[in-house]
Design a binder for these strands. Structure first.
Lengths: 179, 179
DNA sequence: GGCAAAATCACCCGAAAGTATGAAGTAAAT
DNA sequence: ATTTACTTCATACTTTCGGGTGATTTTGCC
């Protein structure tokens, strides 16, 4: 069996069959329409369904920003700058438990809260456009943020940024606790 | 002119005028309704509004509790991005020790040895060109491999591939044991 | 009130990534 | 002897990234 074929054209096949099902549905609806003349009902029903969906979409979309990453700076002075002159490229890596974030690293690198959010999005595999959508800002803004992140992490690609961020415990090492 | 005043209360003013415009609009619609009997339109409109509300209500009601990522001062534990809380459509995730790789997942997805090597390179933050150099093949070959990887993992970006691979334990969850 | 940092956005441009398609050689299975 | 999967490579094309630059707006702080 050409399994690869199926995999390759998975979406085309899915689209095709989906379309077919939809057409059957429409045909059936048409039949209903002819037999019982419930055009208004159907119309209202369609509107109802449509706008219920819209409402859900809206709510989800608008509810998102309520989930804000609150980053409290450590109470102890984060200002200790004895090594300000020559900060080693990769300073010591603390041994924190899994799933933890090293606040000191974040402070040392001077990553802002917004930048962390963008970094998090990157690590989740989102595109800049998707991150922009999640944070309700423009694509250009995300680009600016990511540029700064790359500067601060001293990398040139987002994949590198993710790698470095994980290594320095800037983002959770364990993104998937147990699911 | 108290220009500053305008600036300061910009949003309040905008909100106020927006509300006013909306009210005028409603008044005008009412007039239309009285003059021409566009009951259907109003009916659909009402349904639309009503069900949009229903949708929002539903979404809010059914939405998962808004988990806020709070970072505590001490060696802070951070909840790893709760919006991925939705049960992923992926197959079961085994609970292997850290740094382990789930061979079953690899087998299930049909990833070849070469593809794994490419995937590993991706996760290390390498560019396609760099991976090509490491594996002594051409850039195009790496592109082909990565395309297949994306197909098999059902993703469209390398960052997504990395994320998924980590989640499914296809690549070591803990790339950096303790350094 | 004013300053500085953070956050926002825009535009251009080259590089990298990714898609689509075709092809060809090798090894293992049927 | 076919078939199938794997690996390799190529060309052409579209999309996304990332760098560089400049600007405005918000916001916290003194």
């Amino acid at each position: 069996m050409p399994f690869r074929f199926f995999r390759r054209y998975k979406y085309i096949l899915l689209y095709g069959s989906g379309l077919a099902i939809l057409l059957f549905l429409l045909k059936w609806l048409e039949w209903r329409f002819l037999v019982f003349d419930h055009a208004i009902d159907l119309y209202s029903g369609a509107i109802a369904v449509l706008f219920t969906g819209l409402g859900i979409w809206l709510a989800v979309k608008l509810a998102k920003p309520k989930v804000i990453t609150v980053t409290l700076p450590p109470p102890a002075a984060v200002a200790p700058r004895p090594d300000a002159a020559a900060p080693p490229p990769d300073a010591g890596i603390s041994s924190l438990p899994n799933g933890s974030v090293d606040q000191k690293q974040i402070a040392r690198l001077g990553l802002s809260a917004r930048e962390l959010e963008v970094l998090q999005g990157m690590a989740e595999g989102l595109s800049n456009q998707e991150i922009a959508g999640r944070l309700f800002v423009s694509l250009n803004t995300i680009k600016t943020h990511s540029s700064r992140i790359f500067e601060k992490l001293d990398v040139r690609r987002r994949t590198q940024a993710i790698e470095t961020a994980r290594r320095l415990r800037i983002i959770a090492d364990r993104v998937h606790p147990k699911v």
